[in-house]
Write a protein that binds this DNA or RNA. Sequence first.
DNA 1: CTAGCACTTTACGTTTACGTAAACTTCCCT
DNA 2: AGGGAAGTTTACGTAAACGTAAAGTGCTAG
Lengths: 135, 135
Amino acid sequence: MTIKQTYGIGELAREFDVTTRTIRFYEDQGLLSPRRRGQTRIYTPADRVVLKLILRGKRLGFSLAESRDLISLYQPSSDNRHQLDALLNKISEKREQLDQQLRDIQGMREHLDDAELRAREAMRQLADNAETFKE
Amino acid sequence: MTIKQTYGIGELAREFDVTTRTIRFYEDQGLLSPRRRGQTRIYTPADRVVLKLILRGKRLGFSLAESRDLISLYQPSSDNRHQLDALLNKISEKREQLDQQLRDIQGMREHLDDAELRAREAMRQLADNAETFKE
DNA sequence: CTAGCACTTTACGTTTACGTAAACTTCCCT
DNA sequence: AGGGAAGTTTACGTAAACGTAAAGTGCTAG
């Protein structure tokens, strides 16, 4: 075998550092739908990818609903023209949102650069004062 | 005068497209502390900047507590060495988080590229079918 | 066989970030 | 003077995203 075919819920929980409760909650919200062996949930590599996408969305502040949308973008179950147009519009919107986030990140980085400079400056002052007392 | 010196709450609310309730809530959480003229809140340009920072944080999925931290980074009220070290550590952590977000955004962009390709492909299929029926 | 671990469902609890309604006060306008 | 428009406080309500406890099932190692 090349890759493990299935995963248990605890296994995934450990790998992605979430609780099993969280994974079940995502299923409850219609984001995951693993197979069952009896009562027990069996996750496929595809399920694992979906979970990964959800968590990536979370890191960017996306709601589960938004992540669900983003994931469903990948399966153009859309069969008519109108649906596809709507899809392309959504994609375009998301792109703009990501661009805004890029700008925000850049802004934050500058903010952090400033903060670091100020902190280092404050430390220099401390060092200077110590020097003064020594001499 | 060059720039307006003060702002009313409604004014800021309109400018940033939030409700006055939201702005008062931020004050309640210790993120803003505008002057008062009687009961009425008077916001300075500095307050306005803070609000801007909060909203930028929100767009990146930061909690108000995180934004409060980020903003306070800018005023190194820290007076001793230990505090400053902690500050630099926080800055470093935030930087890593932003880097992770950058990677996530890149991943999402590729995801969107894929989705768009698939959607356009699906549309081509529709067009082709229409063609078939015509001839 | 039973102890223990991982899994299950059900359901109430919690935090964050506001929404919304009620009941004022203040100011401005006609 | 009277009535909006915009401000205020107080307080209960709500959606999202889980946490947490209770009570039960199922396998497996000793």
